[in-house]
């Protein structure tokens, strides 16, 4: 059936089977392969996308259910081709990943956290990412990345002299 999706601020129409997950539709029909398939039963979080700004597991949502919602994938996070967001850059700074497979989901989850909480505590960060499994890092450098991004985002709007300290 035909579905109209708003993905990364772009309207697209696709023709999908009603049983097709949002995950498969993003990957197969829209070729947005930054969204990764992990467990396909809603535990690992590798397929996390934002639906109306909230992290959602794309393997547990049907493509037809997302009609009319705003969907953000990892491809929609960079401000421009070749230019990273503050959060993406922070993950690079602390090496908050190894194989990179859980990374898009992890970053979208962290992005959603920072959208609603600009000064998250360590516990709040740990809590926010607890639904995203990373087998490589033990989470240490991921938490550091989110802390670092929060700090940079907070300071970005401070007067220049203060920010330079």
């Amino acid at each position: 059936m035909k579905v109209e999706l708003n993905v990364n601020d772009r309207m697209v129409e696709i023709d999908v089977e009603p049983r097709k997950t949002l995950l498969d539709a993003l990957r197969d029909d829209l070729r947005l392969t930054g969204t990764h398939t992990g467990c396909e039963h809603g535990v690992c979080g590798a397929c996390t996308v934002l639906v109306d700004g909230a992290p959602v597991r794309a393997c547990l949502m049907l493509a037809v259910q997302s009609d009319g919602h705003e969907i953000t994938t990892i491809e929609g996070l960079a401000p421009a081709p070749g230019e990273l967001s503050v959060l993406q850059d922070a993950f690079c700074e602390t090496h908050g990943m190894q194989c990179g497979y859980c990374t898009p989901g992890m970053i979208l989850t962290a992005h959603a956290l920072l959208q609603k909480n600009v000064t998250p505590s360590r516990e709040e960060i740990v809590d926010a990412i607890s639904g995203n499994i990373c087998r490589c890092t033990g989470y240490g450098q991921i938490v550091e990345a989110i802390e670092f991004a929060a700090e940079r985002l907070a300071r970005a709007n401070e007067p220049r002299a203060a920010a330079a300290e």
């Binding site: 392969t33 930054g34 996070l77 990273l84 690079c92 990179g100 497979y101």
Partner: peptide, 21 residues
């Protein structure tokens, strides 16, 4: 120093086997 591979991963531009069509 930064790990050069990270840049493609944070952008969702890793090239995994399931991305090869």
């Amino acid at each position: 120093r930064r790990v050069r591979e990270d840049r493609r991963f944070v952008a969702g531009k890793g090239r995994y086997v399931a991305d090869i069509v």
